[in-house]
């Protein structure tokens, strides 16, 4: 199979498999985040479970990091190869006549998402690693010991309107990325169901609702902190 994954089509499969994994991950991430809008306690309990469960922390988290890094690195590698396949550009090219803006600009929406992930890691992931694995505090409790810290940290992050603005922009770009990527992933693995109307509609619904959910969470906590 090594020959398969070295071929152009094998790389399409690899991109699609990592995309499917990330599509499922986004659903789980939003399912946890959205609870913060309805219940502080449920959000705290879920966050503590996700942040301390060994299977999630040492089993799923490394796979997730690999999936994210792989999707980005492979995306850049393929983009570079694709760019080099046309050494002289057209003087006039009417891309809008035969394809969507989203499909032609996956690299740019991807770059914005990458910038967002860097910001997100600085905001949440690195402080979490610091608290849990550098300072050794696995309790998940506030400094005064009065309840879990997760909800308070979440609200605190969304005070700054610039950060909220950056999150909203990034999620709009994520929606655009998904509007092509969702059905494209099915096509890449040879599943023509991605071309059928029902699956196209599911893709559209997913691509709009998931980023919208994240935007709602960010805006809710900005206006309700």
């Amino acid at each position: 199979m090594s020959g398969f994954f070295n071929s152009s089509i094998g790389r399409k499969y690899a991109m699609a498999f990592s995309a499917f994994f990330l599509i499922i991950f986004l659903v789980i991430h939003l399912a946890v985040n959205i609870t913060s809008v309805f219940s502080e306690d449920v959000f705290n309990d879920l966050s503590h479970f996700m942040g301390t469960n060994p299977l999630i922390q040492f089993g799923l988290q490394p796979i997730l990091i690999f999936g994210v890094v792989f999707h980005f690195v492979m995306g850049f590698v393929l983009e570079a190869k694709n760019k080099s396949a046309r050494n002289i550009k057209y003087a006039r090219n009417n891309g809008a006549a035969n394809s969507t803006w989203m499909s032609r600009n996956m690299i740019y929406s991807g770059l914005v998402i990458l910038a967002f992930i860097v910001l997100h890691f600085i905001d949440f992931w690195i402080p979490e690693l610091n608290t849990k694995y550098v300072q050794g505090d696995m309790s998940g409790l506030l400094a005064d010991g009065e309840g879990f810290r997760y909800f308070e940290e979440l609200q605190h992050k969304f005070v700054n309107p610039l950060r909220v603005g950056a999150y909203v922009i990034a999620f709009i770009l994520l929606a655009l990325h998904l509007l092509h990527g969702f059905t494209s992933a099915f096509q890449s693995v040879g599943a023509t169901m991605g071309r059928q109307k029902a699956m196209k509609n599911i893709g559209k619904a997913y691509s709009i609702l998931i980023p919208l959910g994240f935007i709602v969470v960010a805006l809710f906590h900005h206006f309700n902190h």
Binding site: S8, R11, K12, L78, K81, N82, S84, A85, R86, G95, A97, N98, S99, T100, S103, R104, M106, H180, T183, S184, Q187, S188
Partner: peptide, 15 residues
């Protein structure tokens, strides 16, 4: 031959 990779834009099908 040095052709690029398909990214499913669908431009080929239209043209």
């Amino acid at each position: 031959e040095g052709f690029g990779n398909c990214t499913n834009t669908g431009a080929c099908e239209v043209e």
